[in-house]
């Protein structure tokens, strides 16, 4: 995004239209952080099994449908066509991937209907298809409004999709692969890489689940490089109710049975790693959860 902006300004500075487009993108992101407007940040495409779609529920009536605590709109799935039901405005396919069954509606483009080159292909029962679409709930029934459906030509895509859906589910519920969290000496880089991954699947991490995952692994990576004392202090602080003000070093020292000097050096080390920050005075610290 940033590199694009620089490119258009220097190379194509005269084209105001391009600039406008870039600005629109930025403003949408700000809107999503405020959470007041319906954002497009949740529109990241997510591979799912049909059972996940059938099972997913709104957090409260009127809320977005959520899987693993993350709002889900755009999904991709792979399954077999069980039945085809052509109607005047759409074609409804029942898609079965072995984990569940769901209706997929492909709307007929009225303008293209007369043009034989652009009519949508119909898929016969039993063929495997990949669907890209938007999960919608209407009168309590869920269906997928398909943007695009295509036949699966290589059967391995079916299996690979199942693994991908599982991978994304595990990334969102348990954090990414362990290699990224404990990645070598470059602890900060490890944390950052993790965060990029989260943003990719979580769409900006507006969902609580996405944020929690990023925080846990990020600070874990920073703390992993610290001494044993510092790790113990961090764990103690993480498990103590401190509120926004954090904990005073005297409290930490008495709670852990350590000397003030040891606590101070541990806290210094954790501050150096960016895991802590001092709050009301120089002797009170809280965990930096970004």
């Amino acid at each position: 995004m940033a590199s694009y902006g620089g490119y258009t300004r220097t190379g194509y500075g005269a084209q105001g239209g391009e600039e406008g487009g870039g600005f629109m993108g930025g403003s949408q992101q700000q809107g999503s952080q405020g959470g007041a407007t319906k954002s497009h940040a949740d529109d990241s495409l997510r591979p799912v099994t049909i059972k996940q779609l059938v099972d997913c529920k709104e957090a409260y009536p009127g809320a977005d449908l959520a899987i693993d605590g993350l709002p889900v709109t755009q999904v991709t799935l792979v399954g077999q066509v069980r039945s085809v039901n052509p109607q005047t405005t759409n074609v409804t396919y029942r898609i079965d991937d072995g984990t569940g069954v769901i209706d997929v509606k492909k709307w007929v483009d009225a303008e293209k209907a007369d043009d034989p080159d652009h009519t949508d292909p119909r898929f016969a029962p039993d063929t495997y298809v990949r669907v890209w679409g938007r999960l919608t709930s209407f009168n309590g029934r869920k269906h997928v409004g398909a943007h695009c459906i295509r036949a699966v030509t290589d059967f391995n895509e079916v299996n690979y999709h199942m693994l991908e859906a599982t991978y994304v589910h595990l990334c969102l519920t348990k954090g990414g692969p362990p290699g990224q969290q404990q990645g070598g000496g470059g602890n900060a880089a490890g944390g950052d890489a993790m965060f990029v991954d989260q943003a990719g699947y979580g769409g900006g991490g507006t969902g609580a689940g996405g944020n929690a995952g990023g925080f846990g692994s990020g600070s874990m990576a920073a703390v992993a490089a610290c001494s044993k004392n510092a790790k113990n202090v961090f764990n103690f602080m993480a498990n103590s109710p401190g509120g926004n003000e954090g904990l005073h070093i005297n409290f930490i020292a008495s709670g852990m049975g350590m000397s003030i000097r040891d606590v101070l050096s541990a806290v210094d080390e954790l501050m150096g790693q960016g895991a802590l920050y001092n709050t009301v005075d120089d002797e009170t610290f809280a965990i930096l959860d970004y």
């Binding site: 099994t49 059972k51 599982t166």
Partner: peptide, 29 residues
């Protein structure tokens, strides 16, 4: 039944079976 031709990765198919039994919440009632 569907004929899948010759390009099927059977170890992948078996891996999916194992995964689908490990993570039943995604795959089965």
């Amino acid at each position: 039944s569907i004929d899948l031709g010759t390009g099927v990765d059977y170890s992948l198919a078996n891996a999916v079976v194992e995964i689908s039994h490990q993570h039943r919440e995604l795959f089965a009632y």
